[in-house]
Amino acid sequence: MELINLKYDEINIKQSRATIETKWMDQFSNFSETSFADHLTKEDLSLLFYLYDNIFLNDFFKNTYKGSFNFSISNRMTKSAGITLCPKNIKSLHPQQVKFEIRISANFLNNYHHLNKEKYVCGLKTKNPLEALLLIMEHEICHVIEFVYFNQSSCRNNRFKNLAYNIFGHKSSYHALPTNGEIAKEKLGLKIGDSVAFYYKSKKLKGIIYKINKNATVMVKDTKGNYRDYKGNQYSKYYVPLDKL
């Protein structure tokens, strides 16, 4: 059966996902819920992908598809929990020339327990960062399948949503994991647009929070600054640790 025609019932999906979790954890000895992603390696992600390939996809990517895969963990991804990179010219390539990369955000996994709220991924409730990772990987696998069959992929489209539901039981294409902005607001009372002060080279500066990732991007009025607002005010940009504001 072709991958785009696969369909599993809810019980089968849960049992298969539990089997993957058990098999993967047997070989992933550095599990720590508080710093989960810091111990992940690309080999761990590769193992997880091919477990899914074996149990859900009948070893399609191992035995049938001729393309190749890379895996990586990113400390810079603060909007997407995962991303699948595919050659833009995939339509003109032979399968053996195609190389995918599945990249997972360390930020969202390590931030998992920083807020006391329910965490949903792909419309399914999770209880730890490992469950979140499994669902993120499933989402990215659906992107890969779409790229292989249709040379393009978008999780906003019904085709993707149907694929993700039929194979993995996903009810949404998005996640509700704690963001840096949510953590900063709840833990430190900081949000975009707030006026803040910080010390730079022993000098106290005042500015406005423009963006919050791992650090805050603060815009400080400066007649020699490289940034200008619609009123003509000039600013310099500073990246400031949140606990220094």
Rank of each mutant, 00 (worst) to 15 (best):
E101L: 07
L57Y: 07
D26W: 00
I73K: 12
E43V: 09
I102C: 13
I90N: 04
I20S: 02
P87L: 09
K91T: 10
L115W: 06
H114C: 04
H113L: 14
H114E: 11
E33P: 08
K88G: 14
L124W: 00
F108S: 03
W24N: 05
F69K: 08
K119C: 15
S105L: 08
D38H: 11
A81T: 13
N107P: 00
P95Q: 02
E43H: 10
S92W: 13
N63A: 12
P87A: 03
F71A: 10
S29T: 08
D59P: 01
F56M: 11
F108D: 00
K66C: 00
F100A: 01
N107D: 04
C122W: 00
S35K: 11
S105E: 05
H39I: 00
E131C: 11
K91V: 03
Q96W: 06
A81Q: 02
E33M: 13
M25P: 00
S72C: 01
L124C: 06
S105T: 11
I102V: 14
L124V: 14
N70G: 06
T78E: 05
Y50G: 08
K88L: 12
D38G: 02
S105I: 06
S35W: 00
D38F: 00
G67S: 14
D38T: 13
Y65I: 03
S74Q: 14
F28M: 08
K119M: 13
W24G: 09
L115E: 04
S68A: 09
L47N: 15
P129V: 12
F61K: 05
W24R: 01
A37H: 05
A37M: 05
L109I: 06
T78C: 08
F56V: 13
N70L: 12
K125T: 14
I90L: 11
A81I: 13
F31S: 11
S74H: 09
S105A: 12
D38L: 10
S105C: 09
S35V: 08
L51Q: 12
H39Y: 11
H39L: 00
L135G: 07
I55D: 08
F31V: 15
E118C: 05
S32R: 12
A132H: 05
G82N: 05
K66Y: 02
K125L: 15
T22K: 09
A132R: 04
S92D: 08
T126F: 04
T64F: 02
L40V: 04
